[in-house]
Simulated scan of single mutants.
Amino acid sequence: MEGKHFRRGLGWPANGASHDGGAARSPGGDAPPGPGSCTGHPTEPGRIHLCSDRRSRPALSSGPLGAGRSEVTLSEPLEDIEGVLLNLDGTIFVGDRLVPGAADAVDALRRAGLSLRFGTNTTRMSRTALVSRLQTMGLELEPGEVFTAPLSAAAWLEKKGLWNLSLCVPEAAHADFGHFKINETSPQAVVIGDLGEAWDFTRLNDSFRHIMEGAEFVALQRNRYWHTGEGLSLDAGTFVAALEYATEREATLAGKPSPMFFQGAAESMGVELFNLAVVGDDPGADVAGAHDCDAAAILVKTGRFQGGALTRSMPRPDLILDSVAALPAALGVGF
């Protein structure tokens, strides 16, 4: 959030801007604390204290954010932030390049002692391949720091004891299900991801029949479409919706915005959901998903949200930033 500096432990920008139309605070001055307002809290390494109205987030009461209205005013205290879940595509990188300042921001969060996970709904490659791609772009991270929709689904399937699967995901993503048995004859579960051009009537009809015969129906994500280098392309959600309509069964969603995804990411960090900040570019998958789990929601104006505007119907984030590069400053973390 260029030009806006949040004081550690205080829920308003130093320049006094107000999102909800309330009285602006004078530049550099502190407003008198009201009921439930945050008056400053001591912090420890790895514990960042913010302020917000997370317990009761209404939809935006005004129209699209315009000039001078680029952030949400925070007023009620949050619990300490101990972990950060960062969306990848559109937040950390766009296309084949890191968002400017993303690598430095990640380094700053690490030095502050925060637990980090990089979360994604992508089903077109394995976690290992994704990590390799990110490292090539210049981001240093370990495979264990990446949490994907396929890994979320695999953990759920293990808990359910469902080991025989029909996998509708690209071959490159099969590695994340390496400890399961592929069974296209009588599977216990059908897992739907993004097959892209590999989708055809036979594949879709086979999945339909398996589900009708009693197999569990698992969707890795519900995205309707995505931006390719050649334009828009149908995503997995289109085929999930078709199967739900035909079978009259609702899929179990493993990726964002499912609580299953955020719970799994938080557990992998050893933090409670209320102590988690979710950072992403998608008001639906990232902000709404964080709200459902009572995690903090931080929206960045890159990727999917670039050039967009929040409307009344959209879930309200706790904070809006120009890009992930502004995240350390917003959390009170120095470079």
Rank of each mutant, 00 (worst) to 15 (best):
L141E: 06
H210W: 06
S115V: 08
T238F: 14
V191R: 06
F239H: 13
E2S: 12
A67T: 15
P150H: 01
I211T: 05
W163V: 12
T122M: 02
R8L: 07
S207C: 09
G270E: 05
A295H: 10
P257C: 11
G29F: 12
A103L: 00
G83V: 12
L204W: 05
T247I: 07
A295K: 08
W156P: 04
A265T: 07
M260V: 15
S26N: 08
S52N: 12
D235M: 04
L299D: 03
G280W: 05
H291G: 13
T123F: 06
A266V: 06
V300D: 09
F305P: 10
Q188I: 02
D89K: 02
G196F: 11
P259E: 09
F261M: 12
R133D: 00
I211F: 04
G68R: 10
E44L: 13
P150V: 03
L98V: 01
G178N: 08
C38G: 12
G332F: 00
G231H: 10
G101H: 04
R312G: 15
W226D: 05
D80H: 14
L243R: 04
T73R: 07
W199T: 00
T73F: 06
P170C: 05
A14G: 09
A236Q: 04
L85R: 03
V218P: 10
S233M: 14
A31N: 06
A241Q: 14
T122N: 00
P77D: 00
L232S: 15
G95N: 01
F201H: 08
S70D: 15
W226Q: 10
L86D: 04
Q188G: 11
C51I: 06
C51F: 07
S75R: 08
A295Q: 07
I298W: 03
V333Y: 00
A295F: 10
P257T: 12
L310P: 03
W199L: 03
S258L: 04
L139P: 09
G144C: 11
G289Q: 06
T238C: 15
E2D: 11
A24R: 08
F274V: 14
A155Y: 10
F208L: 14
S61K: 13
F93P: 02
S152F: 09
A175P: 02
G193H: 06
G113T: 01
A155K: 13
A236N: 09
E197M: 00
D318C: 03
V287D: 05
W163T: 15
L327A: 02
T43C: 15
S37P: 06
T185W: 01
T228P: 11
N183L: 00
R124V: 03
N205V: 04
A149Q: 04
P13H: 02
E213Y: 05
E244S: 10
E267Y: 06
A67V: 14
W156F: 10
L151K: 01
I81T: 10
L167C: 08
